[in-house]
């Protein structure tokens, strides 16, 4: 068979794709290990931990299983969630600026979690808070797609996101205002800033299954995302049920982002930056971007969470603050690029 497609597919593009995924996977594994051995006091080597295990097995168990492991595992899964949902939203809306934070899903999830937690709905149980986040993110994503489903202009969609963010911020302010005690209000503010510190195995047990449900729904859109390169009419003519795909994306984002935000607070821009960096490496194919963005998001989140523990500040820097500081200039850069290209 002399067809160039086979040459390209078997030797030209297929292998770099496998290499990219392998490199990202190795990064995730290495960063997970480093994360497990990193504390506020710096990187404690394996030798230190082994000494601790010999000297004080109970402290070792608490440190590794109850403090470090949930933190590492949440950084990995939340990063994967943000990378994946950014890639799906960008493919679905054909807009490089689409991202759970910019589009208001994250802040709405935070609002949902705040309402459930601080106003004691369902007794403020460990599962109720993530479900509150899921509900908040679901309302926001559905509202966004009904407002902006046909918006082709990137900036118009961002305006819809601004409106949803503003609404979520207003209602969160109201919740702060009405919070039972000033301490509760302060706690909300610190929680919203986003962090993986002081999370327990219980958080992991309740949030991760919800995130996995979200991942499955998000991944189920992959073929249609490729077809959407040609626009909605062409994708429909290729046999895709766009209404069903959008519902799966809404529910997927709601479960994954809602559960992530309800557990860790708002972590911005990861879903924007990761797909943007990886897109040229997958030949701009939206379906190929999903697994790599997932791994890339996990790697970035693990690295950032190692970073906040190593940066020497009096109070540990919140990871949401770090990603916002790095992500905002990137967002400005993208806006300028889009304005210049006139699309």
């Amino acid at each position: 068979m002399s067809s160039a497609i086979f040459k390209v597919n078997s030797t030209g593009r297929g292998r770099p794709q496998a290499i990219l995924l392998s490199v990202l996977a190795v990064m995730v594994v290495v960063l997970s290990v480093v994360s497990l051995f990193t504390g506020r006091l710096g990187f404690g080597g394996i030798a230190d931990l082994l000494t601790l295990r010999a000297a004080d097995p109970e402290t070792f168990r608490i440190l590794l299983i109850e403090i470090r492991l949930p933190r590492t595992f949440l950084a990995l899964t939340v990063g994967a969630t943000l990378g994946l949902s950014g890639a799906v939203l960008q493919g679905l809306l054909r807009n490089p600026l689409a991202e759970p934070f910019i589009l208001g899903a994250s802040s709405s999830a935070a609002l949902g979690a705040v309402i459930v937690f601080y106003f004691g709905i369902a007794g403020g149980s460990a599962l109720a808070t993530p479900l509150g986040g899921v509900a908040g993110a679901m309302v926001a994503t559905a509202l966004l797609l009904s407002l902006g489903g046909r918006m082709q202009e990137p900036l118009t969609l961002i305006l819809a996101g601004v409106a949803i963010n503003a609404l979520a911020a207003a209602l969160t302010s109201l919740a702060l205002n009405l919070a039972p005690s000033p301490y509760a209000a302060l706690e909300i503010v610190f929680w919203i800033l986003g962090s993986f510190a002081d999370r327990s195995l219980e958080h992991v047990v309740f949030a991760v299954p919800l995130m996995v449900i979200g991942w499955v729904l998000l991944f189920s859109t992959w073929r249609c995302l490729d077809a959407l390169t040609l626009g909605e009419d062409a994708a429909a003519s290729l046999g895709f049920n766009l209404a069903a795909i959008k519902i799966r994306a809404i529910l997927g984002c709601a479960f994954a982002v809602g559960a992530a935000v309800a557990t860790t607070g708002v972590i911005s821009f990861v879903g924007l930056v990761v797909p943007h960096i990886l897109r040229p490496l997958v030949g701009y194919r939206p379906s190929r971007l999903l697994p790599s963005s997932m791994l890339g998001g996990a790697a970035l989140m693990l690295a950032a969470d190692i970073g906040v523990r190593l940066i020497d500040t009096q109070l540990e820097l919140k990871i949401g603050v770090l990603t916002a500081l790095i992500g905002t200039p990137f967002f400005f850069h993208l806006l300028l690029v889009i304005r210049r290209s006139g699309s």
Partner: peptide, 28 residues
């Protein structure tokens, strides 16, 4: 979708894919 091909009025292609990749979408 296999029986009926539809060519839209819009010529907007949303991502800078290669010609070959774009044409291959017709095989979906």
């Amino acid at each position: 979708a296999r029986a009926v091909g539809y060519l839209s009025q819009s010529r907007l292609v949303h991502w800078p894919v290669t010609v070959e990749r774009l044409v291959l979408l017709g095989r979906l």
